[in-house]
Design a protein around this nucleic acid. Sequence first.
DNA 1: TAAGATAGCAATCGATTACTTACTTGCGTA
DNA 2: TACGCAAGTAAGTAATCGATTGCTATCTTA
Lengths: 204, 204
Amino acid sequence: MNQEIVKKRMSSEERQGEIIRVAVELAADKGVDSVTTQDMAEAMNLTQGAIFRHFATKDDIWFAVIVWVRERLMKVLDKAAADATDPLNAIERMFFAHITFISKHPAIPRLLFSELLHKKNGKLRQLIEGIISGYEAKIAGLLEAAKAQSLVPNDLDSHSAAILYIGMIQGLVMQSSIFGGKRSLQQQAAKTFPIFLYGVKTRS
Amino acid sequence: MNQEIVKKRMSSEERQGEIIRVAVELAADKGVDSVTTQDMAEAMNLTQGAIFRHFATKDDIWFAVIVWVRERLMKVLDKAAADATDPLNAIERMFFAHITFISKHPAIPRLLFSELLHKKNGKLRQLIEGIISGYEAKIAGLLEAAKAQSLVPNDLDSHSAAILYIGMIQGLVMQSSIFGGKRSLQQQAAKTFPIFLYGVKTRS
DNA sequence: TAAGATAGCAATCGATTACTTACTTGCGTA
DNA sequence: TACGCAAGTAAGTAATCGATTGCTATCTTA
């Protein structure tokens, strides 16, 4: 009952998509910077050299991966925010949408916060910077909107609160990556968010 | 006016200390996992092979580095907490002591949260786990003490708040590592901590 | 001061890495 | 169906990595 490996010739576009998918998968298991092109090739029953038919350099692969992550993440976050009743509720929905997204793709925080990518100057770093600062700005913007509705105090520093928000996600990810699994992440997130919210809200 | 490089034979103990020092330095510049034994050797005017007179493996170097960091950090934190007036004040003092410590040694968060160290199972991961969970427990313990003094509400989840605390530090470090410098870290920390505190405190 | 101990050097090893090249094979299309 | 292009293969390259080895030079100490 041998599992017949169907060797199929794929178009470069298809293959690029599969490389990205496999790269994300492997990064979740072994960490970003220890994923080799050999690993990727093996994971998709291909020779290592074949990968370079579809990407000029390995960095280009990671660049494409980050772009893929950005699109998926932004879509999820926008969708979550769309259903919100008020700015604070939007932040809450985005938070849990983000946590759920991370649960499904454990490699993502490792990608965005990985050392390798951060240090290299160039397109990769610039791309990641853009994602993070854009995210931060979005949260800060929602907090400003919340101010206008007196949901949060006027003297709240939106930028600092946004940093705390992102740090909260980082902390949760790290804690679950070290100690628990997926369930732990969701449960812990549900218990941690109220504390953040409490620190931001106007006291009634 | 050539700078005379004093080539001095050092005892293995002395040399170990210098290797640790140099490793921390280099990790701050290039990121932990791209520091090679060759880099270390060059930074201390030594041949690469000589390093292995003092450490059996490269992992042993990082292990020693983490131990060094733990001792220094714990000393700083304990000293900060000792002068505190109450548990919440202890947390505040520890926070700013930690931020100051990081300002002086930018490599430290990179070490504790680096991918390389996290993934490898074994002594390194165990050591780092111990540091983080110990830190978390210390914060949670202070929060429990604060509960007894009604400084924080009884229904506060200390563990979750401790995660938020550590995440806050991570977020600040990441943000300053991407955007600003040391001054930015200190200033931003001063603006962010009150939000955390506000989320934890009993409402008067 | 002689001798043992050991830090350091120069060279090199084997493994691994991203990337290249010459050749082969399969697929769309005219 | 035949042909041309592109995907895939197999082998190889240069560079880099951690680690080892045989030897030398220096320090300690009896």
